[in-house]
């Protein structure tokens, strides 16, 4: 016999924590936006992203992408901590015990609710030690300064850091396609640094499939 009462946890069924209308809150009088944990949210104007890109390019030239990647890593580290706290508190179990589908849904909804686009994980290269991540409508691709190479360095940093902590191994992330280069979406390859490093210079020369073939040789 199935007991319906036993299916409820404290009379509830945890579901969509990051549902936009439940997640984004605010205090109009104080002039702040908050998430449902009480952490502050801010609306980031596109022109600020544009300004950061242009300022970094002016001040640091070639190093701009590395700065952005490292900023992304910093962001990703903190994002993982917050995500993990929010989700394990809400589901009442550690992230490691969550079903893969629950984790994925939460991450996807979280990405959408923050306005970072739609994210999808592709595990078809898992056996070879790589995880492919696809992102549509990224706010970080739109104002690319160099349309001849993938430009979502911030995002690559976030993903590298987030999944490193999830996998408890230091992972690197290389972007292989970019919306700023008229690709259908932004593709990121996650894997060990020493395995990804050789293909990094190839992202301007080869397409995603060719890079994956090279990686899996």
């Amino acid at each position: 016999m199935i007991s319906v009462t036993d299916l409820l946890e404290d009379d509830r069924i945890p579901s969509n924590y990051f549902a936009t209308d439940a997640y984004v809150r605010g205090d109009v009088e104080l002039g702040i936006l908050e998430n449902r944990q009480g952490d502050r949210l801010i609306a980031l104007p596109e022109t600020l992203i544009q300004g950061i890109y242009a300022g970094l390019e002016n001040e640091t030239g070639q190093a701009a992408w590395l700065v952005l990647f490292n900023c992304g890593r910093w962001w990703g580290k903190n994002f993982y901590t917050r995500f993990q706290e929010a989700i394990s508190g809400y589901y009442n179990k550690p992230l490691s015990e969550m079903l893969m589908v629950e984790f994925l849904q939460a991450l996807q909804q979280c990405w959408m609710t923050h306005g970072w686009g739609k994210i999808e994980l592709d595990q078809s290269y898992q056996q070879q030690g790589f995880l492919i991540i696809r992102v549509w409508h990224s706010p970080f691709a739109r104002f690319a300064l160099k349309p001849d190479r993938p430009n979502c360095h911030l995002e690559a940093g976030i993903l590298a850091s987030f999944f490193s902590q999830l996998a408890r191994r230091e992972l690197h992330c290389v972007q292989t396609t970019c919306e700023s280069m008229n690709a259908d979406c932004n593709r990121f390859v996650l894997g060990l640094h020493r395995r990804l490093e050789p293909v990094e210079p190839l992202v301007t020369k080869l397409d995603h499939e060719a890079i994956m073939q090279r990686l899996c040789q």
């Binding site: 579901s15 969509n16 549902a19 936009t20 209308d21 439940a22 589908v101 849904q105 909804q109």
Partner: peptide, 9 residues
């Protein structure tokens, strides 16, 4: 908004 996409998946 809250649920359909979620449980649909």
């Amino acid at each position: 908004n809250r649920l359909l996409n979620w449980i649909g998946q």
